[in-house]
Write a protein that binds this DNA or RNA. Structure first.
Length: 583
RNA sequence: GCGCCCGUAGCUCAGCCGGAUAGAGCAACGGAUUUCUAAUCCGUGGGUCGGGUGUUCGAGUCACCCCGGGCGCGCCA
């Protein structure tokens, strides 16, 4: 369903991608040839030798009607009228049809994109209301590397969905409730160092919590005391609620600092505690509807008819009457669908919680919800030793420190490469490069695989990195600084050099790539594209002098530079990465 | 025990619903610059896609089995 969206959505606009135009022409040709319309696909060519676009329609049809694919392809080609866009299509291989764009068509399309703020990217016709659940740090714990993927990936998906015309609600499902608060409060009451709290509140809360945790493991009395504190908190004891509130506030300060560095914002921060008073209702309802039942004193949902979940029950009320995070998550589904009017919810949460979300989504289905709920899974961040990334002492790496380290390292490089910049510029550039590098390294990898965190690789100026893309942009800005001119108004591109054509073709693909990202939630498709775009630009930059060229060529090249800069900037912007003007 | 994810060049990774001779970057080697930022570009070498069986015109991609790694599985979140 979702897949066909990109083709459909483009129609509303006067500007269409080559892919969309050719798809239509192919459909028409199939119809005229008396063949089924929806056959195969038309994609960017897998190899430049095969031209710019290709279709395997004849292969698919050949299979369906058991006819010779090559003969079918010849038949289709006869009915294709694509002369306005392409050289005559060629049948090749087992029955592929290859399309090579005519330079004139590329010049025209590039001009259309040049004049479009959206670089040719169509808005969706089927706008959804999407709640994106991402980030979700825990109160009384500093954000650490474990939160980076969810935060960066969720933010990028939100930006892209929004750009494509969806209504997006970014919701931070903060872990601000749960059994750990028994220990947090015990630590606060018994082990807190007030001076240290003033100096660095969160660090001190964490220290007291950890010490409590240690004592509790060896001392049953401490354990019991913590349990009592938790009971009091849950019963609404004023003192404990006050302490809890303070811990939440201190933690939020830490989160906000990180979000500012990351340039991430939320529309909503409904933490777990937000749902507390809804939990009894959830359990009652599920019991009443027969979805849940009582088992060994707890309220449990069984999935007996689902082979995968048959032996994995879901507890929604513990024997002691307490609720757990499954209950909260079900209440959250209710809230998002019924009160936020979401028709789509994306959970950007790590792979270890796969089973949990299968259960939650299944409960929602049994409750009759038809909203599109998806767990967007991602792998872990590993250190260079291939194990979960930790500090030398085995602790989680605080995200704040990691980001500050990124900026420090970026600054060192900036100072080495461009010592003439003033302090303010250096700081600004280092932040854009450092944070950008961290984000890009994460987004450029297929989200499902674990990824190995490497400063050297993410900050490298070669290869598929943020600094490489930023550098391409900066080189363009440098050209415009040098001339003092703005991007020229042109009414025609003139391409003479193959590098110009290649770059222009890449720019035409921007609008084809961006919508694909949401089809599988793969920002790495966009990073790959941007990397190739930067490659094409650098090749163009080597081959084609801009400022020294003669008049129609000069303004055409300037415009091409400007368009490239806009695509790079927009592309990285969709990933939440900023562009420096110099570096 | 059951389930999920991963295994592609020396290293780090792309490769969407099966499609043409599996691609990048790093590293190695060889070239290019008195520059619009060399912060770059061009080229060379490098692969039984963990192993096997099967499905079909066609398998890195799908199915089944095995090996290796990671993660998860009633009262934590």
């Amino acid at each position: 369903m979702r897949r066909s969206q990109s083709a459909a959505t483009v129609q509303r606009f006067s500007m269409e991608t080559f892919q969309s135009l050719l798809e239509k022409k192919l459909s028409a040709a199939l119809a005229n040839a008396g063949l089924p319309a929806a056959a195969g696909e038309l994609t960017q060519a897998t190899d430049p030798r095969f031209g710019d676009y290709q279709t395997n329609a004849a292969l698919v049809l050949g299979k369906q009607c058991s006819e010779n694919p090559r003969a079918l392809a010849e038949k289709i080609v006869v009915h294709l009228s694509v002369n306005d866009l392409c050289e005559p299509p060629a049948v090749a291989g087992a029955g592929f049809i290859n399309f090579g764009l005519r330079p004139a068509a590329i010049e025209e399309k590039a001009l259309e994109i040049l004049q479009d703020q959206r670089l040719g990217v169509a808005e969706t016709e089927t706008a959804r209301r999407i709640v994106i659940d991402f980030g979700s740090p825990n109160v009384a714990k500093p954000m650490h590397v474990g939160h980076i993927r969810s935060t960066v990936l969720g933010d990028a998906l939100a930006r892209i969905a929004q750009f494509l015309g969806h209504e997006v609600v970014r919701d931070n499902h903060i872990g601000d409730w749960g059994t750990q608060f028994g220990m947090v409060i015990y630590g606060w009451k018994n082990l807190l160092d007030r001076e240290a709290l003033q100096r660095n509140p969160l660090a001190e809360i964490v220290r007291a919590y950890k010490e409590t945790n240690q004592r509790a493991t060896s001392d049953p009395q401490v354990r019991e005391a913590c349990r009592q504190e938790l009971v009091k908190l849950q019963a609404g004891d004023k003192e404990n609620i006050d302490i809890w509130n303070e811990c939440v506030a201190f933690s939020m300060q830490d989160f906000e600092h990180v979000y500012k560095l990351l340039n991430v914002h939320y529309d909503l921060q409904c933490g777990e505690s937000f749902y507390n008073d809804r939990l009894p209702g959830v359990v009652d309802r599920l019991l009443k509807s027969g979805i849940a039942e009582i088992s060994e004193g707890a309220v449990v949902v069984f999935f007996r008819d689902n082979p995968e979940l048959a032996d994995k029950p879901l507890i929604i009320r513990k024997r002691d009457g307490g609720f757990n995070y499954a209950t909260t998550d079900i209440a959250t589904v209710d809230y998002r669908i019924n009160e936020l009017n979401a028709d789509t919810i994306w959970y950007v949460v790590g792979a270890p919680q796969t089973l949990h979300f299968k259960q939650i989504l299944e409960v929602a289905r049994r409750e009759g919800y038809t909203a599109d709920l998806r767990h967007i899974i991602f792998g872990s961040v590993l250190g260079e030793d291939r194990k979960l990334m930790k500090t030398r002492s085995g602790e989680n790496v605080p995200l704040r420190e990691l980001l500050e380290e990124a900026c420090r390292r970026a600054r060192r490089i900036v100072e080495e490469k461009n010592p003439n910049l003033n302090e303010e510029e250096k700081t600004d550039i280092a932040e854009k490069i450092g944070i950008g590098a961290v984000k890009y390294a994460d987004l450029s990898q297929y989200r499902m695989t674990d990824y190995i965190f490497s400063w050297e690789k993410m900050l490298a100026l070669h290869g598929n990195t943020a600094p490489y893309l930023q550098n391409a942009y900066v080189r363009i800005r440098s050209i415009f600084r040098k001339t003092g001119e703005n991007a020229p108004q042109i009414d025609k591109f003139v391409f003479g050099d193959p590098a110009e054509i290649d770059l222009a073709k890449r720019l035409c693909q921007f609008a084809e790539i961006v919508p694909q990202v949401l089809n599988g939630f793969r920002p790495n498709i966009l990073t790959n594209y941007l990397f190739e775009l930067a490659n094409s630009f650098h090749a163009f930059y080597e081959a084609c002098p801009v400022l020294k060229s003669e008049v129609p060529t000069r303004s055409s090249r300037l415009a091409l530079c400007d368009l490239t800069a806009r695509a790079l900037r927009r592309g990285l912007g969709l990933l939440g990465i900023k562009m420096p003007e110099k570096m």
